[in-house]
Design a protein around this nucleic acid. Structure first.
Lengths: 209, 209
DNA sequence: GTCTATACAAAGATAGAC
DNA sequence: GTCTATCTTTGTATAGAC
């Protein structure tokens, strides 16, 4: 199968925490959830991809929901940690924004599947109480970015004629949707794309001569 | 139900073409597909929302797939027409890009549900032969925008240090993802958001003083 | 154009043997 | 940790009456 290499590779990377088999199955499930969608992926699909039968999955997990839950929590925990660190260490708003963008692209190496799932399935999963933390994470995220934008605006670094809320959504969409086409094995490194995005965001596409 | 007003209103607008009932049911189905997702919406959901029983839907449509097919085709036909018109009439690349962005936001009035479905479900639906036109539409779209970007680059209007492909994806994502949060009844008109997006895209968020 | 009734398939999940 | 076997629910779709 086309994704097998990737799944196995990321499995190796994750195998230091928790039971190896568990992490392996999560990597496989995550890849399927990300590419086909959560609802479109059956537990039989996951089992097939893992080379076992569907019933055997329930030895490791309560339900399909538990699997996606675990995948999302791991990613969001790491993401919150990253955001806090950037806010602590950044010297000025522009540098902080640039760093957040760079880190977001960087996260695609390890959490590409989780990011795609978060993007694509939050709307559906958010409807269940169990996944209430998804909306919380989105709000955390919004607070981080808008506070930086407002700081920069007050400091005269960012334009004053732009609505911070519109600008925030602009940036958020810009960063996260890249997960749909970003290919970690392609020509463009995550950093190269991030730099171009930062360029466009800060200075626009219009020539200055 | 919270969306009922919207569905009924857009039904009125569409009732001039085709059987009234058919268009009405499509508007209801489209709203559900857009907000809950295609797979998460059952034919019973659609029938409930329409105040009839699920079996009755099959008097109007072959299948759930036929419904989403019809919704998507109508939107994509209109969109192709719009793109061609803009290309024909635009005076220069920058004006054309700005007009495309403005029209894309403008399309949200009439095709908000279809745009969301196209965004969210292309990945899944594109896997079926019947929906091969989805990928074609995406390619058409890419051709239109990248040709404009390259023209503008050659003419010295756009920066030469940006990869046109990266820039294209940046713009595409920027425009289409707004459908996730754009509220036609909110404070911001589609044109107001479009203008801010054009501003950011062309000149960036950094202050020029 | 809608209802009643139901066929049929697929999906999530469980129990107990190995 | 996986398999066999199976239960239960849900969802798509059909047939024929009204």
């Amino acid at each position: 199968m086309f994704w097998e290499d990737g799944a196995v590779a990321s499995t190796k990377r994750l195998s230091n925490r928790g039971s190896g088999r568990r992490a392996e199955l999560l990597a496989i499930a995550g890849e399927l959830f990300a590419t086909r969608g959560f609802l479109a992926t059956t537990v039989r699909d996951i089992a097939d991809a893992a080379g076992i039968l569907s019933g055997s999955l329930y030895h490791h997990f309560d339900s399909k929901e538990s699997m996606v839950d675990e995948i999302l929590r791991e990613f969001l925990d790491a993401q919150r940690e990253t955001n806090e660190q950037v806010l602590r260490e950044a010297s000025d708003p522009r540098a902080a924004i640039a760093e957040l963008i760079r880190r977001s692209f960087g996260a695609m190496r390890r959490y590409r599947a989780a990011i795609a799932i978060f993007q694509n399935e939050s709307n559906y999963l958010g409807g269940f109480e169990r996944f209430g933390y998804l909306q919380q994470a989105a709000e955390d995220f919004e607070r981080t970015w808008t506070s930086l934008l407002q700081d920069g605006r007050r400091a005269g670094v960012f334009r004053e004629d732009l609505d911070p809320k519109v600008t925030y959504r602009f940036m958020r969409d810009m960063v996260w949707t890249a997960v749909h086409w970003y290919d970690p094995r392609g020509n463009l490194t995550a950093d190269a794309i991030a730099d171009q995005y930062i360029e466009i965001l800060c200075d626009g596409i219009v020539s200055r001569e």
